[in-house]
């Protein structure tokens, strides 16, 4: 049990100190890690909705895109500083999620696909509302992340720290929420919704709250991405990849755990870019699809629980070995 408290602390220290120290000078790898963390952030938000809200979304690209657009336009057209604009991007995505909330009345697959419909609608709106979004041509020269206390956050290492902090804060919030009474009620709603309602749990309101929270985090991540790559167009911001990759990552890592989605994103994205892409330049997503299928069929709880089980098993065998020796 004690390892459960130490392991995350070690991981966090490693992520903040070791990774930049070891890889900070390799620009290419650093930018891959930043991209993986971006996916990881969405994956955490997606998994939170699935695990606590019991909802599968096929349209998180909608919230990513809205966050990116709101933040980019606020900095460019209203002169907002970048960080407040990123938070506003998250808020924008949360407000956009309110539009999708009537879909909460719908059962699983209908909900999943109506969010997909919203993602399509938002993309088309971003293309058509040229006077606001500048249309299909996209937005160029979006302001970069600022320099804070002499530290340039727009550098590779700087943006790494920014997205890492966003993702870890999301995970910390998620962990806190899951342990709270509201989190317990949400967990229980998954299988026993009527029983939770009759003790006074306003289940639809809690689900709506989860959706808004998940959208907010995804929106902030989208906003980060806009300021990191400084370019945006509707097809990019609302690309289906912002939905597919986080789902694969979360399912692969284990969507019912806190760390699973992030672990999944790092493993999946880095292996995909460094290995699969090298021998399959086009269509390497086929392997992601295969992984998704394999995980659902073979280990639907994902990698992190699988590893945990294996570790426990090995530990037990080892202890038993000791006992036998003694």
């Amino acid at each position: 049990m004690r390892a459960n408290g130490i392991l995350p602390a070690v991981a966090v220290i490693a992520l903040y100190l070791l990774v930049p120290a070891a890889l900070g000078h390799v620009d290419y790898v650093m930018s891959l890690i930043v991209a993986a963390l971006t996916i990881g952030g969405i994956a955490v938000a997606w998994a939170m909705l699935g695990n606590l809200g019991g909802m599968v979304s096929f349209g998180h690209a909608a919230f990513f895109g809205v966050g990116a657009y709101v933040s980019a336009l606020l900095t460019l057209d209203a002169g907002w500083p970048v960080f407040p604009a990123m938070l506003a991007g998250g808020a924008g995505a949360a407000i956009a999620s309110v539009v999708t909330m009537p879909a909460l009345r719908l059962r699983g697959p209908y909900f999943a696909l109506s969010i997909l419909a919203f993602a399509h609608i938002f993309r088309i709106l971003a293309t058509e509302l040229e006077s606001i979004t500048r249309g299909a041509g996209g937005i160029l020269s979006i302001p970069v992340l600022p320099t804070v206390a002499g530290f340039d956050l727009s550098s590779k290492i700087g943006s790494y720290y920014v997205i890492l902090t966003i993702v870890l804060m999301a995970m910390a919030g998620y962990a806190w929420l899951r342990r709270s009474t509201v989190g317990l009620a949400l967990l229980a709603m998954h299988d026993t919704e009527d029983a939770t309602k009759v003790v006074g749990v306003p289940s639809t309101r809690l689900k709506a709250m989860m959706l808004a929270l998940s959208a907010f985090i995804t929106g902030v991540v989208g906003a980060f991405n806009a300021h990191q790559i400084n370019f945006l167009d509707p097809d990019y911001a609302f690309s289906g990849l912002w939905t597919v990759l986080p789902i694969v990552a979360a399912i692969f890592g284990g969507y019912r755990t806190i760390s699973g989605p992030l672990v999944g994103a790092l493993v999946i994205y880095l292996v995909d870019q460094l290995v699969f892409k090298s021998f399959l330049p086009h269509g390497h997503e086929i392997i992601l699809g295969a992984l998704l299928v394999a995980m659902i069929v073979l280990s639907p709880t994902g990698l992190v629980p699988l590893v945990r089980q294996t570790v426990t098993l090995v530990r037990q065998t080892v202890t038993r070995g000791h006992h036998a020796a003694a």
């Binding site: 317990l184 009620a185 967990l187 229980a188 026993t192 009527d194 029983a195 939770t196 003790v199 749990v201």
Partner: peptide
């Protein structure tokens, strides 16, 4: 407040957590 004929404990929670959720949201 009501009980169900076929008991419906809140899934994934301990006995105490069942009561905590009921108390927090019910009162």
């Amino acid at each position: 407040a009501r009980t169900f004929q076929i008991p419906q404990p809140l899934h994934e929670l301990t006995v105490r957590q069942n009561l905590i959720v009921a108390q927090k949201f019910g009162t």
